[in-house]
Amino acid sequence: MNLPRALSFATLAALGLMAKGVVAQAALEVPLAFVGEAGSSAQFGARQGLDEAIMQGEFLGQQYRLDATPDTAVAIISALPAAGLAELARQHPNTPVLNVGAADDDLRDQCTANVFHVLPSARMAHDATAQWQQAHPDSQVSAQAWHPEFEKYAAAQLNKRYTAQFKLPMDDHAWAGWAAVKLLSDTVAREQSAAPAVLLEALRERLAFDGQKGVDMSFRPNGQLRQPLLLVEAGRLVGEAPVRGVVDIEDLDSLGPSRCEAGAK
C-alpha cells in the first residue's frame, strides 16, 4: 500500500515540476576545478571570472561553480608550475586544462592536446620586448599580460571590478585566471554544452574571446592563447605589442611560436 502511494506522489511531483517548466528549463551545471594556491592572484582572478560567469549563466541558463575536484570538473584551471601542470594534464587527458600559472616555453612545445595556455609564454614576452626596443632602442621594458593601469577596451572596467572585490591591483595571473573562467563560460554558452569533449573541440576550433584587450582571442595549434601584450617600463604602462610601426598590429602571431615543434605529439 505504501509503495504505490509513494510512487503516485513522486509522479504527481514530477508532473507538477513539468507543468511549471522547471524540468524543461533545468540549468546546465558547469562544475570547474581550480588547482593552485588558495589566496593567490590566479585564484582571485578565477573567482572574478566565476562571478561574471554566474551572472551570464543566470540569463542563459547555466550554473557555474569553481569548487569541483579535477575528477568531477568539466574543465580544470591550473595555477601550478610546469611539472605539476604536465602531471595534471596527464591524469585528466579528456578534460581541458587551462594553464594560468606557467610561462615555460617547453610546455607550449609539447603541444599536449588538452592543455590551453591562457598565460602568455616567456617567448611571447621576449618577442614583445624586442619589437618595442626596435622602435625605442634605449628603453628597459618588460612585457606583461595585463596591467592595473590599462584602460582601453574596457580594461578599466575589469580593473575596477577586480580591485573593488579583492582590494588588489589586477596582475598577470589574476587576468589569466579571470580569462580562463570567462572563455570557458563563453564557450559553454555558445555551445549549449559543458561536455569536456565539446569544450576541447570548441576551444581549439571556434574560440573568439573578448579578453578586454581589444581583439578577439583564439588558441594557436600549440595551445597558446593569441593575445596582445602590454609593455611596462619602471612599473608604468608604456605601450602594447604587436608594436605599431614595427609589425602589423593585427598580427598577434608575431609574438611567440604558433606551431607544434616537429616530433612533439
Binding site: E52, Q56, F59, L60, D210
Partner: peptide
C-alpha cells in the same frame, strides 16, 4: 551587455 555578449 558588452562583457556578457548579450542583447537583453
Amino acid at each position: 551587455s558588452e562583457s556578457t555578449n548579450m542583447l537583453h
